[in-house]
Design a protein around this nucleic acid. Structure first.
Lengths: 241, 241
DNA sequence: TGATTATGACTGACTGGTCAGTCATACTTT
DNA sequence: AAAGTATGACTGACCAGTCAGTCATAATCA
């Protein structure tokens, strides 16, 4: 049982059937955007993509602010400048919107996690670069909200946490592991046991995200400074910061 | 309209004023000893406390499983073996139940955080003891669920995150800071910058809690082993595990 | 002590408002 | 005109919170 109400699912006409049935895997057929330019993008398709994007953006704001159960589709519609019925032209139901939206919002993070760690210099420099980017692009942005949203709702949407694990966590862990190996090979990292728990490299980053959401107003946190100290810890002593 | 309720007997009068944290105060003298063999028929106060506890326990289960908004008070009542109206004899409304319940559940954690770190040995031993206790009493228990609940709902209940910050986080940070100072004094910890970010000591513990809730089924985590590696990191250990 | 009355804890049917999802109608584009 | 798209009033389930009435228990009385 999901958190939403169960509906009787009365017989329905075949009309709006599969607006977004694919939810499970592909991002979507319509929204894909111009990249797969099979058509010259008639005004219609463009408008559809726009509408879809507006709904997603509005949904993101609302879901982040109120959580899944407390979000009203009426509000999403209003924020998107669209009638409620329109949402159902693009998404089969509230849950589909939610899941697709989170997955869509995760794409940049997935790309970041999949990108090669820009090898070359020291492992330390690589980790520092990663931390810097994370603070800049995640901790202090909407992306952080999404992470918090997943932490909050993930347990109630198994397929979502699975997706997140597969696409973000697993990749991130693999990347971190690589970095650790590299660091060990270069003699920068001395504890090979770290390889078993790459989570330890990113744990402070997670804490920074959570802190930002819960306690920032009570006690601001200089995330970058914290990560810097953490990195010092990983690589052993270093000059006074 | 019509029928059913006849008898315009305006009985009602006062209702239990507040139902605040007290509710069941002093049973005076009676109660306690009145216990009869198998039937726990003690005084009213005892029964009231029991009922209250049942509601709190039921609420904890439900809120943890579904989150605040999606939890139905009907379900809480059913689980507690009580009528819905009864809940309102003890708590003013859903939110009051939620907040009181979380605070109540936090008490053991608060005590743990306030307890003196059992000084004497090495800072490392102290941290190890802390980690062990945390894994045993939090990560793998209901208490972990509560932490996750706070992370999930905290942003929507400012007074709750404030309470949590004041009673748990602030104390925990103070304790960690003390421990770090002690470690520095003993020459076990070499990076004084840690004092500015005691969060770093507990970050992996937080990650363990979150992991347990979201990914345990996909990829089990040996929390204690992870914390051990983390501790090695803090204290600059480097011998091959 | 047993009988009678007072108390207030407890109940659950009910109300009023909310909201996900539908669909007849209207509007646009081709 | 046909096909596709958008609308928003509407429906029906749903649920927090209420309250008139019940009944176990305590308090008082005979």
């Amino acid at each position: 049982m999901s958190t939403s109400r169960s509906k009787p699912k009365a017989g329905r006409t075949t009309r709006s059937a599969d607006a977004g049935t694919v939810a499970a895997t592909k991002p979507s057929k319509i929204a894909a955007s111009r990249t797969v330019a099979s058509k010259p993008l008639s005004g219609r398709a463009a408008k559809a993509a726009e509408r879809r994007a507006a709904i997603v953006a509005a949904g993101l704001d609302e879901f982040v602010a109120r959580g899944f159960a407390a979000t009203r589709l009426d509000d999403v519609a209003k924020r998107a400048g669209v009638a409620k019925g329109t949402i159902y032209l693009y998404f089969t139901d509230k849950e589909a919107l939610f899941q697709e939206l989170v997955r869509y919002a995760l794409v940049p993070l997935i790309e970041r996690m999949s990108a090669p760690p820009a090898a070359g210099g020291s492992a330390r420099a690589m980790l520092e670069g990663f931390a810097e980017g994370f603070v800049r692009d995640v901790v202090q942005t909407r992306r952080g909200d999404i992470l918090r949203l997943i932490i909050a709702e993930g347990a109630r949407f198994p397929s979502l946490s699975e997706f997140y694990y597969r696409e973000v966590v697993a990749r991130g862990m693999a990347g971190m592991r690589q970095l650790i190996e590299y660091g060990i090979a270069r003699g920068e990292i001395h504890n090979p046991a770290l390889l078993q728990f790459p989570q330890l490299l990113v744990a402070p980053a997670m804490v920074a995200v959570i802190w930002q959401g819960l306690f920032a107003r009570l006690s601001p946190l200089d995330a970058m400074a914290m990560l810097q100290v953490h990195i010092d810890l990983i690589f052993g002593e270093r000059r006074t910061a």
